[in-house]
Write a protein that binds this DNA or RNA. Sequence first.
DNA 1: AGGTATATTTCGCTT
DNA 2: AAGCGAAGTATACCT
Lengths: 256, 256
Amino acid sequence: MLRDQLLTPTPADLTVFLNRHLRTRDCLVQVAGLAEVVYHGRAASTADVGAYLLLIKPDGSVQVHAPKGVKPMNWQPKTDEITAFVEDDRCVLAAARRSPQELVRVIWLEPQVAQALEISERGGFMLSGSEKQLQELLARQPELIEPGLRVLSRELPVSSGGIDLYAQDAQGRYVVVELKRGKATQDAVSQLARYVRSVEDMLLRTRQTVEVRGILAAPEITAPARLELEARNLEFVVVQVPQSSAVPSIPDSLFD
Amino acid sequence: MLRDQLLTPTPADLTVFLNRHLRTRDCLVQVAGLAEVVYHGRAASTADVGAYLLLIKPDGSVQVHAPKGVKPMNWQPKTDEITAFVEDDRCVLAAARRSPQELVRVIWLEPQVAQALEISERGGFMLSGSEKQLQELLARQPELIEPGLRVLSRELPVSSGGIDLYAQDAQGRYVVVELKRGKATQDAVSQLARYVRSVEDMLLRTRQTVEVRGILAAPEITAPARLELEARNLEFVVVQVPQSSAVPSIPDSLFD
DNA sequence: AGGTATATTTCGCTT
DNA sequence: AAGCGAAGTATACCT
């Protein structure tokens, strides 16, 4: 698991260490210590000398962590090329992407610990409560949205994007349903309105008059979104994402 | 820098190690090894046994990394409470948040390495190329958008949200400018349209007739966004985010 | 605490 | 490669 480790390495040693373990692309490489970080690409950034933690995953993704937050201070998704080299008597790690063209450089001033860890491909990972699951549920049980609703299509591709659920109500009117797993915002209303218009345009090519209903289905909705929804003559329906029944309640001890 | 380290610790030792270093809240704690991860909160997830890397930052944020991607497999922003304890002869790390109420549990089956690292508050960090910078530039030089444009307000708070730039053109017409640092999408068009309507509503209270222009200013725009923009009688203007002149071009060697 | 918008968003999917 | 939308988005800002 801990395949290799260096303590307070020299620039040359760290460079060799990094290149050796990066080449195999089968372990997670990390370095902690004093460094400077420079990024240039979609934007540009520089971080003064500080104690940071660098992670390089087997897929070539890079992240430099400062002491706060989930988000890295600097990062790079799956890179095209990663190299370490010595420059001005310091070990420099350079990670580059081609598209978009961008580059992160980590200049090590005082590397303290370097490790190569074996990290396995994650076996089973299951997430429940996503919008996709909600969509599957409601496609099977459209009556949870409204009695008499029949689902015609899921992810119906319209001019751009896809309509979550396309349906017909008990009176035969077409219905566009936009789902949100969380609280619905004005954005969701805009999206729904856009889809309704697309469907209206589509139907107008074959019919004279159309009435297309738009339903925003979510567990909650913000007050401004509700106002805009009503102003646009669209509807809101409460739907609950079913949580697994085996919910372990958070032990009291953790909140005492 | 490397304050403390344990190799293949027993459940009890790891528990003590974690609690000791978590309590001080002054170093980054990490554990690598075989573990199971369970999350329950806004959604729910389970990860089968695998070799993962756990990071706990001094601010209480938690992330569990699998071998791929910048994003952690599981995470928790700044937690309210973190504790390690022994359960069924295994060390379990539980990190909980109150709002939203959620919990991550990492069950260690074979912890291999545990470390406590000193990570300093990042000193200077400068990012350039953000939308905020673009806004500052264009507020100073509105002629980059259109000759004769005068900026009345930045981040003007409207019914909901803020208008990036609120201005008046050479003919005295009011102009709403929505900025994007990257390619503008349909979302941006919806946003702009919403703001234009808000301003129209606002002005209609004091005036009889109003003509409010809406300008989407971005380096690029997607084709569908452009169509919708034109359908709504809104405008598009190309603006470039100025990149720092000291741009280090990506060395050829990295792409040979 | 609620609402909104940005992000070097990332990521996955479809065209 | 481009476009689109979801995300347990995270994070900052403002009311």
